[in-house]
Amino acid sequence: MEIVKPLTQYLAVMLLSPLLPGVINRVKAFFGGRRGQPLLQLYFDLYKLFLKTPVYSRTTTWVFKAGPVVGVSALVAALAVLPFAGRPSFLTFEGDFIFLLYLLGLARFVTVLAALDTGSAFEGMGASREMQFAVFAEPAFFLGLAALARVTGQSSLAGMFGALTGDIWRTAAPVLALLTASLLIVLLAENSRVPADDPNTHLELTMIHEVMVLDHSGPELAYILYGAALKLWLFGSLIACMVLPRHSGSWALNSALFILMMLGMAVAVGVLESIIARLRLTKVPYLLITAFAFSALALIFQMGR
C-alpha cells in the first residue's frame, strides 16, 4: 500500500509536466492577443519527434547522442527525491536536496558536452553561457534550500516542505517571502525563461538553452524537450510547496490542490514573461546575484531569530 501513493505521484509528474509549457504559451498568446497553440502542443510535438528519423552531424560522436539520454535520465531520477504536495517520494533522506542539486548538475554537464560535440560556434556560445549562469545560480539555489532547512529544522526536501505550515508562514513570513523570490529567480534562469533567456527568440546570439540544442533532432530532441518540461515542474513544485503549505489530511484533495497550484505557477510564469522584457545577457549574472542576496538575507534573518 505504501508504494502506491509515491508511484501515483511519480507517474502523475511524468504525465503532467509537458502540460506546463502549454499553459505558459497560452497565457503568453493571450497577452499577445493571439489564440495560441493547443494546450497539449508539447505532447503532440513529443509524439511526432519520437517517430522522426534524426539527422546527425558528421562532426559529432557518441557524446552528442548520449547527452539527451543521460540528461533526461538525471531529471527522471531527480523526481525520485522530489516531494509531491509536501509528501515524500521514493527517496527521502537527510541531505537529499544535495543529491537533487548534483543530478541537475549532471544533466547540465552532459547537455553542455553534447553541445560542444557539434563543433558549432553557436552551440559553444550557448554552452559557455549556461555554465556561466550556473556558477551564479547554483550557490543561490543551495543557499535558499539551506535557509529553508534552517527555518524548518529539517534536512530532507520532503521533511522541509512537510514541516512548512501556515504557522511558520505567520512567524517567519519575511524569510519565506525572500526565499520564494530567490527560488523564483532561479527557476526563471534555470529554465531559460524571460528575463534570463527567451525560449521564443530565433536570434541564436541571444539564446542560451535553445541554442545548445540546435543540432538535435528526432528522439534526442524529444528527450531534451521532455527533460526541460520535467525541470520546469521540478523547480515549480518547490515554489508551489513553499507558498501552499499542506492544509487538509486528505491525500487526494492535497494532490488536486497541488496540481492546480502548479498550473497557477505556469500561469504566473506566463504572465511574468509577457510583462517583463528580457535582460541584456551581461546583466543576467546580476539578477542571479540578487537571488543569492535574497537567500543570504533570508538565512541571516533566520539565524538572528
Binding site: 528519423t53 534524426p54 539527422v55 546527425y56 552531424s57 558528421r58 562532426t59 559529432t60 557539434t118 563543433g119 558549432s120 560556434a121 553557436f122 541564436e204 540546435l214 543540432d215 528526432g218
Partner: peptide
Amino acid sequence: PAEGVTWDC
C-alpha cells in the same frame, strides 16, 4: 539516421 554537416544556422 541521415548525416550532414553541423547545422550552424
